[in-house]
C-alpha cells in the first residue's frame, strides 16, 4: 500500500488560534504555539511533523484559509 508523507505551512499572521485544525487532524500533528502573533493569537503549528500524512483535513476546516498542505508518496 502506498504511503504518504505530508507537511503543512500555517500563515501564522492570519491564524486566529481557533483550534479547529488541531481538533480535525487525525494524526495529532498540530498544536497551538506558546508564542502569539501580532494580534495576540496562539497560532497553530506542527508539533509532530513526522506524523503528517498530508490528508488536508486541517486545511479544509480552517475558517481563515491559513493552511497550505503538501504531500508526497513514499515507498
Amino acid at each position: 500500500m502506498a504511503k504518504f508523507k505530508g507537511a503543512v505551512v500555517v500563515n501564522t499572521e492570519r491564524c486566529k488560534g481557533c483550534d479547529l485544525c488541531v481538533q480535525a487532524c487525525p494524526s495529532h500533528v498540530l498544536g497551538l504555539a506558546d508564542q502569539v502573533n501580532s494580534k495576540g493569537y496562539h497560532y497553530s503549528e506542527m508539533k509532530h511533523e513526522d506524523d503528517c500524512v498530508g490528508c488536508s483535513a486541517c486545511g479544509y476546516v480552517c475558517p481563515d484559509a491559513c493552511i497550505t498542505v503538501y504531500k508526497v508518496k513514499i515507498q
Binding site: 508523507k5 505530508g6 507537511a7 505551512v9 500563515n11 506542527m46 511533523e49 498530508g54 488536508s56 486545511g59 479544509y60 484559509a65 491559513c66 493552511i67 497550505t68 498542505v69 503538501y70 504531500k71 508526497v72
Partner: peptide, 15 residues
C-alpha cells in the same frame, strides 16, 4: 519537512 514543502507537492491551499 523541508523536502516536502515544494510547489509540485502542493495539495491544498488558499484560493
Amino acid at each position: 519537512t523541508k523536502d516536502i514543502i515544494k510547489p509540485e507537492n502542493l495539495v491544498y491551499g488558499k484560493t
